[in-house]
Design a protein around this nucleic acid. Structure first.
Length: 303
DNA sequence: CAGATTTGACCTCA
DNA sequence: TGAGGTCAAATCTG
């Protein structure tokens, strides 16, 4: 049988890629952006210190503090693609629905529906007042997770359609994380990503491994771990904000120079803690704040 | 051919 | 009742 050609409507409908990856809005270099933000924050902090010393002007100090916090918040957004601030579905959602069984079982859905049309009745519930976390960004940010698009919808009074994504591992591992992405502005381009649920899927690498990425510049060095790693209390480590309060006792010796972009470090981050920002996300930590002992990453401030 | 995307239909809820 | 969220068949892609 000859396959029917693609309907005209599909040809005329802008694809997600066309809509989101126009030349002026192609994905940006996330690491560079993070580095620039860190640099900005550092400079704001220096300015604040200088102001305190010289003028003591409260207004100026407040302004600089605001700038500093703004940098921190943006960094936090970039790093916590998935945080535990991210929503939970209501207990009844999906898990409580008659058809939820972690699916992949397209068959299992089948099992709970006598006929195709009736089948969907009651098989899913709309999220209601579940918490969510929204990030606005000038470009699409790769949050390090594998997403699969499952829908697209024209939104009333909105120029751009909303795109719906679920975790690729939804059916294999029952991961309930989803996100909605919508372009909300033209000039400058602005994308709103709303995350619901959190990733419960396992990382791609072995739990004892993290991929190290070294971001380097004249003023500072950063380590970026592009995978999860386990913590003492069974969670996953994260280093949002905390590295601001590091003890200088742990200034990094030469060990780190032995590691380079993309290195895989075997071992366990033995002493990091989970915080309100603590799972399933990329981890950025200032180079000076970690050290290696017997190839084990040490995060002293959490010991 | 398996996995991803598209898109119309269906469903829930305000 | 209709806007928005999800499903799933059809289609595409690597």
């Amino acid at each position: 049988m000859i396959k029917s050609s693609r309907p005209l409507s599909r040809l005329t409908t802008p694809t997600f890629e066309m809509e989101f990856f126009s030349p002026e809005t192609r994905p940006f270099d996330r690491n560079k952006a993070i580095h620039e933000l860190l640099l900005g924050r550092k400079l704001a902090n220096q300015l604040k210190a200088a102001l305190i010393k010289s003028t003591g002007d409260d207004d100026a100090r407040e302004l600089v503090t605001g700038i500093f916090n703004s940098f921190s918040n943006t960094l936090s957004m970039l790093n916590s693609a998935e945080s535990d601030e991210v929503s939970r579905f209501p207990a009844s959602t999906h898990l409580g629905s008659p058809c939820f069984d972690g699916r992949k079982s397209e068959d299992s859905v089948e099992s709970c529906k006598p006929s195709r049309l009736k089948s969907r009745r009651g098989c899913y519930k709309r999220r209601r007042t579940s918490q969510s976390r929204t990030i606005d960004s000038p470009a699409l940010v790769d949050d390090g997770h594998a997403w699969r698009k499952y829908g697209q919808k024209v939104i009333l009074k909105s120029k751009y359609s909303r795109n719906y994504f679920r975790c690729t591992h939804k059916y294999e591992q029952g991961c309930q994380a989803i996100k909605h992405v919508q372009r909300i502005d033209d000039e400058p381009p602005l994308y709103r990503t709303t995350y619901y649920g959190h990733h419960t899927c396992k990382p791609l690498l072995k739990p004892s491994e993290v991929v190290l990425d070294v971001i380097e510049s004249e003023s500072s060095k950063l380590l970026s771990f592009t995978n999860h790693f386990p913590t003492k209390n069974g969670g996953h480590g994260s280093f949002l904000h905390q590295h601001q309060s590091l003890s200088p006792d742990f200034l990094l010796p030469s060990e780190l120079s032995a590691y380079d972009h993309g290195d895989v470090i075997s071992g366990v981050a033995s002493s990091c803690t989970t915080s309100s920002h603590s799972f399933g996300m990329d981890i950025m930590v200032e180079m000076e704040s970690v050290k290696f002992e017997d190839d084990v990453l040490q995060f002293p401030e959490f010991s």
